[in-house]
Design a protein around this nucleic acid. Structure first.
Lengths: 176, 176
DNA sequence: TAGAATGTTTAGTAGTTACTAAACTTAGTA
DNA sequence: TACTAAGTTTAGTAACTACTAAACATTCTA
């Protein structure tokens, strides 16, 4: 039983749309990336419109976000007024810029909030029942250590690029 | 300058609420977990209501989700009809059950979609321009390899529990 | 059995978000 | 200059989500 290429493309686009939505990005963003990712040549805004069914407006704004995250790149041809877009294929590079993009985000400010809570508790500047303060201090500290561990691992992922994917297996075996 | 304990708690709850929202969970879920996490004793539904400002109904449903994810545990006292809830403090245990919970989720089905796309391309059962099929095959394969690498690392995180957080630093240094 | 205490479910709502349609802008061309 | 092609911005909308309020269910106690 054979599958026709257009159908295969549609399925792939649909899968990436779902994955995108799961990570808290618009469904359409995933679709746009998918279309660009499996295109041998850079595509114009109109071509993306055609393959995703989204309107020009939506693509215009979402492609800008994708570019800011480093997941797509914008280029142009001489003597052609159109913009052309292509997908970044190095995902580790993308991850790095996505994380950079997240700097100063609500998320980072929230993490900072926890850190500040811990600092206050550590500096002994919190007034209240001593035993309770101590208890909370230990709990918040454990949480902070967990966050730090996750942070370290995130940085590790970023570094995987240099190591090459093939080495991941080796690292995993070290962990076992 | 001293901070009063109730204010510190409020700030902490607010921080975890934001973090929760960032990860795509309801804000209230983070607040409930925060309240339980910094409580020395298990709390009843009414006590959680009081500290979060949410209604009984909301807490009833959200605490169930938290329990299913392994982030809180429900218990009861003899001769007391109330349910009591306390936070799980081993985050690695929680992560494991969250990931298990995700099994068969929309996300996993989407990942499966990509894998199936690749299998079709590999088995040569896709009809269409040969060069294009080959190009798409390579791209999808690269994406699949990336997903696999992330998956390996996720599993590594889960295993960190056994190693102890302190060893994470050593692992990171290996990666450098 | 009635009443109270606890927890669950359900109908509705306010707020958010991803998107469309269309007005607008900018730049190139006849 | 008017016209066209491309992209952006903006106003509005449909669908979703987290939550509230209140009805409902269950279990214990007088």
């Amino acid at each position: 039983m054979t599958t026709k290429l257009p159908q295969l493309k549609k399925d792939f686009i649909e899968s990436l749309s779902q994955i995108s939505r799961f990570w808290g990005f618009p469904k359409g963003m995933g679709a746009i990336f998918a279309v660009l990712y499996i295109s041998p040549t850079p595509l114009s805004l109109d071509e993306i419109t055609e393959q995703t069914g989204l309107t020009k407006g939506a693509i215009s704004t979402e492609v800008r976000t994708l570019a800011r995250m480093g997941l797509v790149h914008r280029s142009s041809k001489l003597g052609d007024r159109k913009d052309y877009y292509e997908a970044e294929t190095d995902f580790y590079t993308s991850i790095r810029s996505i994380l950079k993009e997240r700097q100063n985000s609500e998320f980072d400010r929230a993490l900072l909030g926890v850190r500040e809570t811990l600092e206050k508790l550590d500096s002994g500047s919190v007034s209240g029942d001593d035993a309770e303060v101590q208890f909370i201090r230990e709990r918040v500290q454990a949480l902070q250590e967990f966050f730090d561990a996750i942070d370290s691992l995130t940085n590790a992922v970023i570094k995987l690029e240099k190591l090459g994917i093939s080495n991941v297996a080796k690292i995993i075996s070290i962990l076992k």
